[in-house]
């Protein structure tokens, strides 16, 4: 008998029972959702305030900007101050638009986009790129989390290999918590995605927190009221 069948046979022989826990489970769900409701802000503005507070607690930065141009300026200032000459972007349209805007102002900058390179080349390119402009699908207010679907981003290399991440997001993309997030995501999207809550970190040495472990050191969220304009 192969391992699969022998494992399944052993499980059967263990004599488990099909416990129906659904009733008890839904009572608890009700309690949880009522409790969540009582602590969840109602307005978009309050949700973003909560998001800002949470992301700052995990060493992220948050700015509200007028539009892409304003966001681009913040990014350019950072790049010039830090003498960074390469900017990676992920695949969303908004990232490309912003990149073009940045290049328009600072023509010396090199833009690294996923479509320029094949798989093997791409990781090498992003690995030597110090900043990236990305576009999360959602922001989760109660934990300060950004949600990226791989389908939308087309790549995760800039998000993880570049040191300084700028996340552009539209005001409409806020959700209060992950429970709501999963109601908003499509089944297909849930398969391949990643959540980001602050820059990478470790506390493996004497519990001392150090930012920038094997991924980004900085994470800046730039939220605009109407990002498409």
């Amino acid at each position: 008998m192969d391992s699969r069948n022998s494992i399944l046979k052993r499980i059967q022989e263990a004599g488990c029972y099909s416990a129906d826990t659904s009733e008890h489970s839904s009572t608890i769900d009700l309690k949880i959702s009522e409790s969540i409701k009582s602590i969840t802000p109602e307005s978009k503005k309050d949700l973003w305030d909560q998001f800002k507070k949470e992301i700052e607690l995990v060493a992220g930065a948050f700015y509200k900007t007028e539009n892409i141009n304003a966001s681009a300026e913040i990014i350019i200032k950072f790049l010039t101050d830090s003498k960074i000459s390469r900017v990676g972007i992920s695949n969303e349209e908004i990232c490309l638009k912003t990149a073009l805007k940045i290049k328009e102002i600072e023509s010396g900058l090199k833009i690294i986009s996923p479509s320029q390179f094949d798989h093997a080349e791409r990781k090498k390119e992003y690995a030597v790129t110090e900043a990236a402009v990305v576009n999360p699908s959602f922001a989760v207010a109660d934990t300060g989390t950004l949600v990226f679907t791989l389908k939308g981003a087309g790549t995760s290399y800039p998000h993880f290999l570049c040191d300084n991440i700028f996340a552009l997001i539209d005001e409409s993309r806020i959700v209060p918590n992950q429970f709501e997030l999963f109601r908003r995501l499509r089944r297909e999207e849930m398969k391949e995605m990643f959540f980001v809550t602050g820059p990478s970190r470790t506390a493996d040495i004497e519990k001392v927190l150090v930012l920038g472990a094997h991924g980004p050191r900085n994470l800046t969220v730039l939220m605009s009221e109407n990002i498409a304009q």
């Binding site: 695949n91 996923p114 798989h119 791409r122 087309g154 849930m190 391949e192 990643f194 959540f195 980001v196």
Partner: peptide, 22 residues
């Protein structure tokens, strides 16, 4: 002691994206 871990990675298949990444 975190509200959320920094990263949660969801894996749902090889060469997932349109660009053949992963």
């Amino acid at each position: 002691g975190q509200k959320s871990s920094t990263y949660v990675n969801f894996i749902g298949g090889p060469t997932g994206s349109a660009y053949g990444e992963g």
